[in-house]
């Protein structure tokens, strides 16, 4: 098992390296002069040449990639051409907001997905209503859901805020809902939650359906499996049959879908954060792209890619833990 973990993490590392190389190359071949973006369109040719030299843009390609990697390892992602601040400190400001949003959205997606999956088995009318509602909502793209949510719950009903996080994070985690509790500020906690509900739901609904469908199908398959018949023949209660013999055998496909969806959610935040003026990296990225702010774009891409790779590695490990046939 340990060997499997090491191997899986090793291959993730290789993937991250490949990702960094791709980002580096993209940066190289993209039209648009980063130097101009950095020092302005009206700078003199001498100033441009000097800036080019000082940014290390004159060395040969492999050497520049090694430099790029070296700086990555030191946690130096360069200086944003737009904000003129270190990209790392920019990320430090914006990443926690996104991480909090996606975490809450992911929890919503899991809960809704599980409800969706078991709604057929639960004999309560509310679950099938919920299932229908989720299916209808999932047909709309996330920006439409976000706008619809704002129109209904903010403009019309006034139940929820229409954007922003409600406060600025004051450390130590950057997660408002955690920090507020650490500071004993329940009112702020409630505000933070209110601000999170709409954007998180807008992000969560499509993934919830995807996870729920897969889970539902594999639960159904497992419920009809021979070994579940054996478990019933043993005289186990339905609860023991479900808990001991069904869940672990049907969780695998849902896990891999959840991993994929987590990745998609990080990509989806760009749109949702724009609509809710959420001060996260999606917003940051959206402002960096029009001005070819390469260090910022590269850093965000690298961070999102790394999160995606790690999430999927974790999924593989969880699957291996659930099914002993996978790692033997």
């Amino acid at each position: 098992m340990l060997k499997f973990i090491v191997r899986r993490l090793g291959s993730s590392l290789v993937l991250i390296l490949v990702l960094s190389a791709i980002i580096f190359l993209l940066q190289e071949i993209t039209p648009g002069d980063p130097v101009r973006a950095y020092i302005g369109l009206n700078a003199s040719p001498e100033a441009v040449a000097a800036a080019r030299e000082s940014l290390g843009l004159n060395s040969p390609l492999p050497l520049r990639y090694l430099h790029f990697l070296g700086r990555l390892l030191h946690g130096d992602l360069g200086v944003s051409f737009r904000t003129h601040r270190s990209v790392v400190s920019d990320l430090g400001d914006f990443l926690p907001a996104t991480a909090e949003l996606v975490t809450v959205a992911f929890v919503f997606a899991l809960v809704l997905g599980i409800l969706f999956a078991v709604s057929g088995a639960l004999r309560w009318w509310g679950t099938s209503v919920l299932r229908g509602l989720l299916l209808v909502l999932a047909t709309g793209p996330s920006f439409l859901l976000a706008l619809g949510g704002i129109v209904l719950f903010y403009s019309r009903l006034g139940w929820l805020p229409g954007g922003d996080r409600g406060a600025n994070a004051s450390g130590p985690t950057g997660f408002l809902m955690i920090d507020s509790l650490l500071h004993g500020d329940v009112a702020q906690w409630a505000t933070a939650l209110q601000h999170l509900v709409l954007p998180a739901l807008a992000l969560a609904i499509a993934p919830a359906i995807a996870i729920g469908r897969i889970l539902r199908a594999s639960l159904e398959t497992t419920m009809n499996a021979d070994h579940v018949r054996t478990a019933r023949a043993k005289g186990l209660s339905e609860g023991a049959v479900l808990g001991g013999h069904v869940v672990r055998n049907s969780i695998g496909p849902a896990l891999s879908m959840a991993g994929l969806q987590l990745g998609f959610m990080f990509a989806g935040v760009v749109v949702v954060e724009q609509i809710f003026s959420w001060p996260g990296i999606g917003n940051y990225l959206a402002r960096s792209i029009p001005v070819s702010d390469f260090p910022a774009i590269a850093a965000v891409t690298l961070v999102l890619g790394t999160i995606y790779i790690i999430a999927n590695a974790l999924v593989d490990l969880l699957q291996a833990a659930a099914d002993p046939r996978l790692n033997l």
């Binding site: 021979d226 070994h227 054996t230 478990a231 019933r232 023949a233 043993k234 001991g244 002993p324």
Partner: peptide, 23 residues
Amino acid sequence: RDLRRHELGVIFQDPMTSLNPTM
């Protein structure tokens, strides 16, 4: 359930599929 637990034992055809693969 009590009957199955205390009075009945069952052997099915295919032991590969009739045993829980993850237990």
